[in-house]
């Protein structure tokens, strides 16, 4: 039993970098793509944006696991033949982008109209207003939601083990299959993820508090 725990911890340490890389990559790509989608959906006329809206709803309305299967197993039939790691990163980024885009869109909508009217009265041009008023005001408003989503995405990375991405869950499960010590390995996994999400949530709360303090200075 001690042996199994030990092996699990070693496997966890080996898998953690992949989990963190996929997570950070997925969050980064997801935020950039989500921002672009959210901005287009907010600024462009509805007639142009409904395909984008349909895509976002399709991603938000289906399980991440099914999306992974569709991309990884279905992709090769239409010429998208990706390695597990790349497929995992693409899937995670797309999944994140759909949710992030909704956060950004809501953020744009939440900028008080009066603050934009004030800018207009003072002569700021439309691009100046977007760049200097809308974006900063929106960024502050959406930050907690972005961080929240990022934490949720850590947990989704575990699903990638099912399409054989060699991340944390996959590695530690490997120990389980080799030793049949599934209980011990799963326990180690649970504790590692718990620590990971608690740590990021804690860091996020600290960040939020710092920003609040700065805004109230």
């Amino acid at each position: 039993m001690i042996q199994a725990l030990n092996d699990s911890l070693i496997a966890a340490a080996q898998g953690l970098p992949m989990t963190l890389a996929l997570w950070l990559g997925g969050v980064a790509i997801g935020i950039v793509a989500g921002f672009l989608i959210g901005a287009v959906r907010f600024f462009a006329p509805l007639a142009l944006t409904w395909p984008l809206a349909a895509l976002v709803e399709a991603v938000r309305g289906t399980p991440f696991l099914v999306q992974c299967f569709l991309l990884y197993f279905g992709g090769p039939f239409i010429g998208i033949d990706l390695s597990p790691v790349v497929a995992g990163l693409v899937a995670l980024s797309a999944y994140g982008a759909a949710y992030f885009s909704e956060v950004f869109r809501a953020g744009f909508m939440a900028v008080p109209k009066g603050q934009l009217e004030a800018a207009r009265m003072l002569g700021l041009s439309r691009p100046q207003t977007v760049l200097r008023i809308m974006l900063p005001v929106m960024a502050l408003a959406v930050l907690p939601s972005l961080v929240n989503l990022a934490v949720i995405l850590i947990k989704e990375t575990a699903v990638l083990s099912i399409i054989t991405v060699p991340e944390l869950t996959f590695r530690v499960q490997g120990v389980g299959s080799a030793t049949f010590a599934f209980a011990e390995t799963t326990l180690v996994l649970a504790l590692v993820y718990w620590a990971l999400t608690e740590a990021t949530s804690w860091a996020a709360r600290g960040l939020e508090r710092r920003i609040e303090r700065r805004m109230a200075a």
Partner: peptide
């Protein structure tokens, strides 16, 4: 025209920009 500097407006809700 709004923004040409001829007319200034003070709003009920102040409408200060919170990040500045």
């Amino acid at each position: 025209k709004p923004g040409d500097g001829a007319i200034g407006m003070v709003f009920q809700q102040f409408n200060l920009w919170p990040h500045l």
